[in-house]
Amino acid sequence: MLRKRIPLLICFVFGAFGLAQYYSPHPIVVSGYSTVLDWVQIIFAFTLIVGVLSVFQIHLKKISRREKLWGYSIVTLSAIIVMASAGFLGGTGRGTAFVWMFDNMQVPMQSTVFALLAFFVATAAYRGFRLRNVEAGILLAAAIVIMLGRIPIGALISDYIPAGAEWILTVPSMSAKRAVLIGIGLGSITTALRVILGIERSYLGRG
């Protein structure tokens, strides 16, 4: 009962309410919607805290069992403790240790990791962009025009390159993007209906 039926019933009731509230401007429905939205935010916040605890559990296990690379787990755990302590004890305003660590540690590291992808994307393009057929040729041509159109050298070669890049983005690329978005919309609605009606139950897991 508690394992399957009640979760499915909760899912149906709240799913049906979520769907119905869109079509009703009644004050009770509007206030109910706002309350449930807060509830979802609260549960989501607890879910993220469970994630943090899970990270702690995994790294503590790694350290206690002296698994491979266990030393680095100490770095992760220490960083979590230091960052969280700085935020909870010192606040999150301008000039605090929390903001200092965010600006001088998290932001530079995150953007460098994304910058590294430039090299991997370039090697992937070298391997993937072989002119094998018409489709591959179109893909290659579109990518080259877009890349050239976004840098000053494109305009130096010809004024048509930036204009062509703009046209590709706003006309043929946009039309395919719209078709993909319509497909995603139809797929999402179907999946959402399956979830509400209890046909799709994979979120319940096993057991």
Partner: peptide
């Protein structure tokens, strides 16, 4: 599963009109 069902059910419910409007 109880809180998960609430989150997923409500999320699915509100996503239907939003998807219909914005994506289709």
């Amino acid at each position: 599963r109880l809180p998960l069902a609430l989150m997923i059910g409500f999320g699915a419910g509100i996503s239907i009109p939003a998807m219909l409007q914005a994506r289709i």
